[in-house]
Amino acid sequence: MSRYVNLALVLLFPVSWFAPLLRAGILPVFGLSEISVISGLQSLWQSDAVLALVVTFCAVFAPMMKVLGRALRDFGLLDVRAEPALAVLGKLAMADVFLIALYVVIVKGVGLATVEVAWGLYLFTALILISLFLRSPK
C-alpha cells in the first residue's frame, strides 16, 4: 500500500506547487493576490537568487527527490544504505513549510498587510508530512 501512496505523491507534489498557498495583499481593500510555490519562486528569483536557490531546493527538489528515491527503494532499485539521505531530504522539505508559516506570522503581526492561508498550503504540508512518515515495505 505504501508504494502506491508514494507514487501518488509523485503526481501530487507538482499539483501542490501550482496550488495557491496564500492570498496576500496590502490592506483588505485592495484585494488579495494568490501566491503559489511557483509564483513565489518566480518573484524570489528576481530579487534574491541565493535565497531563491535554497527555497527552490527545499520546496521542489528535496520533496521530489525524496519520493522518487523512496519509489526506487520500494521497487528494489536503490540500496537500503540510501535511507538516511532520504530522511534528510524529507526534513529539508519540511523547512519550506516552516518558512511559509513564519512569513504568515510575521506579515499578520505587522498589521498593514492581509494574509490568508489557502488550500494549497494544507495540501503541500500534508504531502510533506505523508512523505516523512511513509515507510518502505519490508
Rank of each mutant, 00 (worst) to 15 (best):
S2R: 02
R3N: 11
Y4V: 13
N6K: 08
L7E: 14
A8Y: 02
V10I: 15
F18Q: 14
A19E: 07
L21E: 05
L22S: 09
L22H: 06
L22D: 05
R23S: 14
R23Y: 12
G25P: 09
P28K: 07
P28M: 01
L32D: 03
L32G: 07
S33L: 13
S36L: 08
S36C: 08
S36T: 15
S36W: 12
I38S: 07
S39L: 08
L41C: 07
L41I: 08
Q42L: 15
Q42H: 12
S43A: 15
S43V: 06
L44W: 00
L44A: 02
Q46D: 10
Q46E: 14
D48G: 05
D48E: 08
A49D: 08
A49C: 03
V50I: 10
L51W: 03
V54E: 11
V54C: 08
V54W: 04
V55F: 14
C58E: 15
V60A: 10
V60W: 04
F61E: 02
A62R: 12
M64F: 14
M65F: 14
M65Q: 10
M65S: 14
L68K: 01
A71L: 10
L72I: 00
L72F: 11
D74H: 09
F75I: 12
G76R: 07
G76Y: 04
G76M: 10
L77M: 13
L78Q: 10
V80A: 15
P84E: 11
L86F: 07
L86H: 10
K91D: 00
K91A: 07
K91C: 02
L92C: 10
L92K: 01
A93F: 01
A95E: 10
D96S: 08
V97S: 13
V97H: 05
V97K: 04
F98I: 15
F98P: 03
L99R: 10
A101I: 13
L102N: 10
V104Q: 02
K108A: 09
K108E: 13
G109Y: 00
V110N: 12
G111K: 09
L112K: 12
L112Q: 11
L112N: 12
A113V: 05
A113W: 02
T114L: 13
T114V: 15
V115F: 04
V115R: 13
E116R: 15
A118Y: 08
A118V: 08
L121Q: 05
Y122W: 14
L123H: 02
L123C: 01
L123N: 03
L123F: 03
F124K: 15
T125C: 06
L127G: 07
L129I: 15
I130M: 08
I130T: 14
S131F: 00
F133I: 09
L134G: 00
R135D: 13
R135L: 08
